[in-house]
């Protein structure tokens, strides 16, 4: 039974790796920079899942701690990148000033087109 669980986990990890490899295609070809951000974010989620499965495979708990860290870092990195493109600076605090009505849009300083290649 242990052996069967082992192979089950390895299979799941394999499919997660295939999913990551497919996402790499979107990351490389993504026409707009937002496609790339989306691909990296999704890639991060898959890495978290992969780390969880993998640490069960090798029977060590420490991998799950790293998965927790990544689940948090992935979120923070995504927000940081978006903030960078919205304000073209990182030291802008995200407070309520960036929230507006649908009619009066608050447009950031850095407005750039979606195309990046």
């Amino acid at each position: 039974m242990e052996q069967a669980l082992h192979y089950l986990n390895v299979g799941a990890a394999m499919f997660l790796l295939i999913g990551m490899a497919l996402l790499l295609g979107r990351l490389l070809s993504g026409p707009t920079l937002y496609d790339r951000i989306l691909a990296v974010n999704s890639f991060g989620t898959k890495t978290v899942l992969f780390l969880c499965v993998f640490s069960l495979i090798i029977g060590r708990q420490d991998g799950i701690d790293i998965a927790i860290l990544y689940a948090l870092m992935n979120f923070i990195a995504t927000i940081a990148v978006l903030k960078f493109f919205r304000y073209s600076a990182l030291d802008v605090s995200m407070n309520y000033s960036s929230r507006g009505d649908l009619s009066k849009t608050v447009v950031g300083k850095a407005e750039m087109s979606g195309e990046d290649t």
Partner: peptide
């Protein structure tokens, strides 16, 4: 710990998705 990860993903993934889409929309 796995349940904690599930909870964190459940909280952060819609926020991140909303941030990405909002930024794209904001940039036109």
């Amino acid at each position: 710990k796995l349940a904690l990860i599930a909870f964190l993903l459940f909280l952060t993934s819609p926020t991140a998705a909303h941030a990405v889409v909002g930024a794209a929309h904001n940039a036109g």
